[in-house]
Amino acid sequence: MTIWNVSPQPVGSPESAALLREYLVDVADRWYLLHDGRRCTLEEIERHLAEMRGDDPGTLLVARYGEERAGCVGLRRLDARTAELCRMYVRADRRGLGGSGALLRAAEETARAWGAERIVLETRRDLVEARALYARHGFADVAPYKEADAYSEVWLGKELG
């Protein structure tokens, strides 16, 4: 039986960079297909990657399915009490195998180790699978906790208790 292993990785490592690029292509394609009826271009991906590099997730947790890297999630401290989840991603061919749950559990454990009492995130309305996943794991609507950008439509949070 293949199992999931999750561990922190340097954000700038080749492995992390490849997963973050896959994540960005996945969410950008969905955005552009919904709003413009097309996939994102290489130039748009490069521009978004440059923007993303300036928005350090703090800690990047990488999930492996067996020996294969298959997903990631970013986690950063917003304040002494709050951690923010960002860039949750599992490769399409590994979805439905428990990787998202493994990543969320690892992110929550990391946040607790930092002393955080709650974890928050922002997402888009069209990412319905992600929103359902978060709901299954106890996340609920919260007030916006930072200024919205073009992609901020839903804010969720969970007390870590």
Rank of each mutant, 00 (worst) to 15 (best):
L24P: 00
L24K: 00
D26F: 00
D26I: 00
V27K: 02
A28N: 03
Y32A: 03
Y32I: 01
L33H: 08
L34D: 11
D36G: 00
G37R: 02
G37W: 03
G37A: 03
R39N: 07
C40L: 05
T41L: 04
E44G: 00
E44L: 01
E44Y: 00
E44S: 01
H48N: 03
A50T: 09
A50R: 04
E51R: 05
E51C: 01
E51Q: 06
G54P: 01
D55G: 02
D55E: 15
D56E: 13
G58E: 14
T59Q: 14
L60I: 13
L61P: 08
V62K: 04
Y65Q: 08
G66L: 08
G66P: 10
E67S: 14
R69S: 14
R69T: 12
R69Q: 12
C72I: 07
G74A: 13
G74V: 10
G74L: 15
L75V: 14
L75M: 12
L75R: 06
R76M: 14
R76E: 13
R77K: 15
L78Y: 07
D79G: 12
D79L: 12
A80L: 14
A80V: 12
T82E: 08
A83D: 07
A83I: 06
L85E: 09
L85G: 07
C86I: 12
R87I: 05
R87E: 08
M88K: 07
Y89N: 07
V90R: 04
V90A: 02
V90M: 05
D93P: 05
L97G: 02
L97K: 09
G98C: 07
S100M: 02
S100W: 01
G101I: 06
G101W: 08
A102W: 04
A102Y: 03
A102N: 03
A106Y: 11
A107D: 13
E108V: 12
E109N: 13
